[in-house]
């Protein structure tokens, strides 16, 4: 079965001063994949995410998304193009309600321009926005907490809200940075259910995860990283002979 490639990374490197965080890595992500990314701490997994979303510029290499090189594009452009992410350390708009958080997640679909500032959105446009927010709240099981401030939620719900915010931009590629990290057994199951349902909708997901059982349950492909390199699956001779 050949599937369309969504993301292709070629020879991507990132050096922070003398530290080599990523060392010429190559891989591809096909549409509909749930790609697990694992490896010891400090091997550049989060750096890889930051490079894909454009928050950090790479030292060298190329990233192709949908067949075009996106290195010159701003992080905002990439969100519009369908790349969304969550963070390892939870990031929310803590002072705002759950609903407003998701509404901000839908930011790229808000009607732009001065016209809307002065005359406001039409009834249709605000209705569409509200529908989208309601849909996401329902999908993530957050609808009953819609008027709560983000800071009031329990940790498990905060993680889910993070995913909800990321879904707001209607992404094609979702990058999840340790979505199960630090969660109770119940929240883990619910997060897993959410990821399964997203996969069912055909969303492509890259997921940083440490626990093998989660990877086995949700991922169909796996990248194992070590010292800024991908060691499994490997294409490079020196990595193939590297000691385990």
């Amino acid at each position: 079965m050949t599937r369309e490639t969504l993301l292709e990374v070629r020879g991507l490197s990132k050096h922070f001063g003398g530290v080599i965080a990523l060392d010429k890595i190559d891989f591809i992500v096909n549409r509909g994949d749930v790609l697990g990314v694992t490896g010891p701490n400090g091997t550049g997994k989060t750096t890889l995410f930051n490079l894909i979303t454009g928050q950090v510029p790479p030292t060298s290499g190329e990233i192709f998304y949908n067949g075009t090189c996106i290195l010159q594009q701003s992080p905002e452009w990439r969100v519009r193009a369908g790349i969304a992410r969550t963070f390892q350390k939870t990031r929310l708009f803590y002072g705002l309600s759950v609903e407003e958080n998701v509404r901000l997640g839908c930011y790229v679909h808000e009607p732009p321009g001065m016209k809307h500032v002065i005359f406001g959105s039409s009834r249709d446009e605000s209705a569409t926005q509200k529908e989208r927010v309601a849909e996401i709240l329902e999908m993530t099981g957050l609808d009953r907490y819609r008027s709560y401030p983000g800071s009031e939620l329990s940790y498990g719900y905060q993680r889910r809200l993070e995913v909800a915010i990321a879904l707001g931009s209607n992404p094609k590629l979702l990058l999840l940075d340790e979505p199960f990290g630090g969660q109770s057994a119940q929240s883990t199951t619910e997060m897993g259910r959410l990821i399964k349902s997203l996969q069912g909708q055909g969303l492509t997901i890259m997921m940083i995860e440490h626990r093998m059982e989660s990877i086995v349950s949700y991922c169909n492909r796996l990248l194992v990283m070590r010292g800024g390199r991908i060691v499994i699956p490997t294409h490079r001779k020196e990595d193939r002979h590297a000691p385990n």
Binding site: V79, L96, Y107
Partner: peptide, 25 residues
Amino acid sequence: RIVHSRLGRALVAIREDDVLAQSVG
């Protein structure tokens, strides 16, 4: 008008968390 528009939302988002604001576009 500005506060109730996309622009106003963006400003509040920046106040709350500018990194997350960037990652919602």
